[in-house]
């Protein structure tokens, strides 16, 4: 006979119930942290945000007025980095999944992409400063900042493109070839349209990433205060995350500036919320569409 312990099964069950309760408690506390952070900023910032706040420039040494130039600056940076990173990233993803020889080459590119995504954003800032600002002579400018941010979100774009294309079964490719289509035609008419929904989700998330990054634009683009909006890509611009950093840390009149900081943080959070929501809704919408097809 096997010397089983008496009531071991009940004891097992009891400790399991206890542990699982602990795990769920810890999980909910992590969600609680998220809710706390978001709630805190929403509650403190909601009173600050009004039309005037988002449509006027800062006044009286950042103690009054709005954040309009920072919103515009962030918008320019999003557009600039997207113009660079989206086409290059999508082409890179297409190359990896459709053209590159399977095995060593793809592995190598994937490794490099992973490495790039692991490099801290401040290193991108240094690099952008050395290459775009100093060597290429763009100076502190929207151009330099956009390119730096574009490089930063490149791995994200590449990876989502690759994943999206990988999910498309080979039978579609074979079907297209069998009808005499060339590789490029297949990619252009079958593969890309089918992968687009997932690619777009990735692009939206990368927009979210770009809009919140501070370190890469510290030395490539961001201005503390500009009296007028930028006129060309070679002008500096203000940006929301940098604006928040500046007024939160080097304020001269904290009493007056703190509300502005809360307002700025809330605008940033709202952008992220919208971006994530959009990505999730799109993902679900397209998932359902694929299923019903």
């Amino acid at each position: 006979m096997i010397p089983y312990k008496k009531n071991y099964s009940t004891r097992k069950k009891r400790s399991q119930t206890l542990l699982f309760a602990l795990f769920s408690l810890m999980s909910y506390s992590v969600i609680g942290i998220l809710v706390l952070i978001l709630g805190f900023i929403i509650v403190k910032g909601i009173g600050v945000i009004n039309w005037e706040f988002i449509s006027t420039a800062p006044e009286e040494g950042m103690t009054k007025g709005g954040i309009f130039p920072a919103i515009v600056g962030t918008f320019y940076l999003i557009i600039g980095s997207a113009l660079f990173a989206f086409p290059v990233g999508i082409m890179s993803g297409i190359y990896m999944n459709e053209y590159a020889p399977k095995g060593k080459v793809v592995q190598f590119i994937r490794m490099m992409t992973n490495n790039l995504s692991g490099i801290p954003s401040i290193v991108f800032g240094l690099f952008g400063m050395a290459l775009f600002v100093n060597t290429l002579g763009f100076g502190d400018s929207i151009l330099a900042g956009s390119l730096t941010l574009g490089l930063l979100c490149l791995p994200l774009v590449i990876r989502t493109t690759e994943e999206a294309l990988k999910a498309i079964p080979d039978s579609y490719r074979e079907g297209s070839y069998a009808l005499g289509a060339t590789k490029l035609q297949t990619v252009q008419r079958i593969i890309l349209p089918m992968g687009m929904p997932n690619i777009i989700t990735g692009l939206i998330l990368s927009v979210g990433r770009v809009s919140g990054e501070t370190a890469p634009i510290l030395f490539t683009c961001a201005a503390y205060f500009l009296p007028h909006l930028p006129n060309s890509v070679l002008d500096q611009c203000m940006a929301l995350p940098y604006h928040l950093y500046v007024i939160a840390t080097s304020g001269t009149n904290i009493e007056a500036q703190l509300p502005i900081a809360y307002g700025t943080a809330l605008v940033l959070i709202l952008i992220i919320l919208i971006v994530n929501l959009l990505a999730n809704v799109l993902r679900r919408y397209f998932d359902r569409k694929v299923k019903t097809n």
Binding site: V88, S92, Y95, A100, I109, M112, T135
Partner: peptide
């Protein structure tokens, strides 16, 4: 088609190029 394919291939190696450039420029400075 060949030109487009070249373009894809160039983009494919962009991350590798960027990493190399980062190394070069960080060291240079």
């Amino acid at each position: 088609e060949r030109i487009i394919e070249r373009l894809f291939a160039c983009s494919g190696y962009i991350t590798s190029v960027v990493i190399i450039l980062i190394v070069v420029f960080l060291f240079r400075e």
